[in-house]
Design a protein around this nucleic acid. Structure first.
Lengths: 339, 339
DNA sequence: TTGAAAGCGCTAACAG
DNA sequence: CTGTTAGCGCTTTCAA
């Protein structure tokens, strides 16, 4: 199959120089006499030389690979994030290894170890389900940046997140401004920091304002359409149903809208529904979904930049938190409170 | 930062054996006395040894990395495909490097060279925009599997595709069975084989059956919602507009539906619309979109399996074509021909 | 069954 | 400014 592999040695021979000189040309390091540089470059082209990063990496113990570990790329939230990571990494000379954990903790651990094995320079963990100790442990072997961590995560690790609390707070306030007082909330996965903060944003807004606070207006969902459908049905069939339902993500909200339709309720005339994330689908469903926009692409870009800067800066040690802003996108699924 | 790196040497020292023995334990090769095996394993655990695949790869000139090169992961068609690739690769012991080309031919070339540089074992090119010669050239250095190639691609390279021709043929026939005779078609990108075949399927069906064939019922789109909106508007405002519009993908179809709405036409009462791909969004838009289902996940799985089998089988040389079936999913956007 | 040793392709001293 | 050389961590002969 693959024919003779061209190495730096072949290039040196053809160019009539030593290995060292070729290496220097490749790395741009040292000053090489321009005449020699030319000849080396010519030789490389002639031989179609492709450097062996594997050898380079073995020697330098560095690489230009970074891992991106996320729950599953088929969740419509992640492609934009992944693209942000990839674009920034690419711009900074890095390539990404994509790993779907399916929220399986052991699979995630295996992936991180594989990344260490491959001497990846760093890894971005999105909604990691690894125990805190594991993350600490791995961080000794590979640079880590987290996107959305666990509630109360204390590790000394860079973290990129969004203003989840404010996002939900603003959404509830907006519903209040439309006259709603009975606003329900469906959570997603309270083992993630972002979801806890969304819930806190809801609670704070409801308790602060002139809303009716009822425990049974809060349901525990699972970030899926089916979950939204089921819990939406329950909420809407209560004796005193809410007039507005906030959801922890857009898929849940879509499920709620479907439930409302199934119950012959109109959105937003009979009930208002709001989502979170602002995935592309929001604009395409009917009615178009009011949602709290998360800068998914930006998050990916930011995480990649933070990680690579850490990789390049040997003596950076203190970890930082970066919080990106959310923004309420008002569309057709929310309206004036009925009656 | 990263503390002392544990190598096979450290393990050997602790276990009181030689390097070779440790290596043999790791690879499961040779027969190692079980007593020594135990001690090596114990030492590896104690030291938290993580193998250096970089060194392994340098030595063996093999790796467990495969590249996945696709237009852009943010196109809703690709995440499912990528997941299929990843799952199968993972099952077979491989990891994937994700590369978005943004349909930029040079970027694609750079990525493929990077993959060769990293000694990836193989690469899956999805809708490659590389010239045929380049693909041939690269295939000397790295195993390649194509998903959806160029029209008339002749290279001796494994190819995974779907029955695009039959897909569109069946869709048009179905519209015929609903009484439609004026069926339009909007293409996507005729530089890809799949798109050409879809068009051919349309042409054949129209010319075969009792349809009205008109050149101006065929528009050249670009696989986007905006493109669909624009061309849909044009078609629907013709003096003799079509009563049904087939689209080369779902996004285009969604654009057409939006155009119909903007013109106060009802779908499907006034005009039927069908898409291609059957992305998740189809079920969520209103009306739910009739579409030709492509087995995206299966395509990814298949391509990964074919590639890895080629990697493992040294003397496999003849290339094969694998064609996966499409299936018409009838939903709400198509109906009886008006009047 | 094991140990010793060569070397994969490259970088980074170091001496010239 | 250039050539020589010693490894990076691992696999894989080859002897023992």
């Amino acid at each position: 199959m693959s024919k003779k592999i061209v190495t730096i040695k072949d290039v040196a021979r053809l160019a009539g120089t030593s290995l060292g000189t070729v290496s220097n040309v490749i790395n741009g390091s040292k000053t090489v006499k321009s005449e020699n540089r030319e000849r080396v470059i010519k030789a490389m082209e002639e031989l179609e030389y492709i450097p062996n990063l594997t050898a380079q990496s073995l020697k330098t113990n560095k690489s230009k690979l970074i891992g991106l570990v996320l729950p599953t790329i088929t969740n419509p939230f992640y492609p934009a994030l992944a693209k942000g990571v990839e674009d920034m990494a690419n711009r900074m000379g890095y390539t990404i290894i994509l790993c779907n954990t399916d929220l399986d903790c052991e699979k995630e651990a295996r992936y991180v170890e594989m990344l260490i094995s491959n001497r990846a320079a760093g890894v971005i963990l999105v909604k990691s389900s690894l125990p805190e100790e594991s993350i600490e442990k791995y961080s000794k072997k590979i640079k880590i940046t987290l996107i959305d961590s666990k509630p109360n995560f204390q590790g000394n690790i860079d973290l990129v997140e969004t203003s989840n609390y404010e996002g939900l707070f603003k959404a509830v306030e907006y519903l209040g401004s439309l006259g709603h007082t009975r606003v329900a909330y469906i959570t997603g996965n309270l083992r993630s920091k972002s979801d806890v903060e969304r819930l806190n944003g809801y609670l704070q807004a409801v308790k602060n304002g002139k809303f009716l606070y009822r425990e049974d207006y809060i349901k525990n969902g699972n970030f899926t359409i089916d979950g939204g459908y089921k819990l939406g049905s329950e909420l809407l069939q209560m004796p005193e149903p809410p007039t507005a339902i906030c959801c922890s993500n857009d898929l849940t909200a879509i499920g709620v809208i479907q439930a409302a339709k199934a119950l012959n309720l109109r959105v937003p005339q009979d009930v208002s529904v709001a989502g979170f994330d602002d995935i592309d689908i929001c604009k395409l469903v009917m009615p178009a979904l009011t949602s709290i926009h998360q800068p998914k692409y930006d998050q990916g870009e930011k995480a990649a930049r933070v990680l690579i800067e850490k990789i390049n800066d040997e003596n950076a040690s203190i970890a930082r938190n970066y919080i990106l802003n959310t923004e309420l996108k008002i569309r057709e699924s929310t309206g004036i409170c009925p009656k």
